[in-house]
Design a protein around this nucleic acid. Structure first.
Length: 107
DNA sequence: ACCGTGACTGACG
DNA sequence: ACGTCAGCCACGG
């Protein structure tokens, strides 16, 4: 029963495994943790991930590649800039070619 | 212990 | 195709 240990730590561990230039979704992480219905909780965990430099929270977006959590970064454009620095193309706060850069932790 | 909030998602009309 | 509603889990007050 380590699964009920720190839910947040579980999330961070998955996020750290996201390869450079790739992104994933809250739902995929939740599913990987065995709590597919806890996508919102994953997002909440990311809120606390701000204190974890090893957790690239900017690589985590919602299911359509929208930077819903960008406001939680230092600056409104911080998340977008970080993603662009990794080669992503963002238009209207949405990652273009999202399917091509999506990384599924379950796979 | 109860209620409200939230970086979500899927289903319905 | 688009907008709206409800469910879900964890945390703070």
């Amino acid at each position: 029963m380590q699964q009920q240990n720190d839910f947040f730590e579980r999330v961070y561990e998955v996020v750290r495994q996201i390869p450079f230039g790739k992104v994933t979704t809250y739902g995929s992480i939740a599913k990987y943790l065995g709590a597919a219905k806890s996508a919102r909780t994953v997002g909440y965990a990311m809120n606390a991930a701000h204190a974890k430099p090893d957790v690239p929270a900017h690589r985590v977006v919602n299911r359509i590649g929208l930077l819903t959590g960008k406001h939680h970064f230092g600056g409104i454009n911080t998340m977008q800039q970080l993603l662009e620095a990794e080669g992503h193309v963002i238009v209207d706060d949405q990652i273009q070619q999202f399917d091509a850069v999506f990384w599924n932790p379950n796979a």
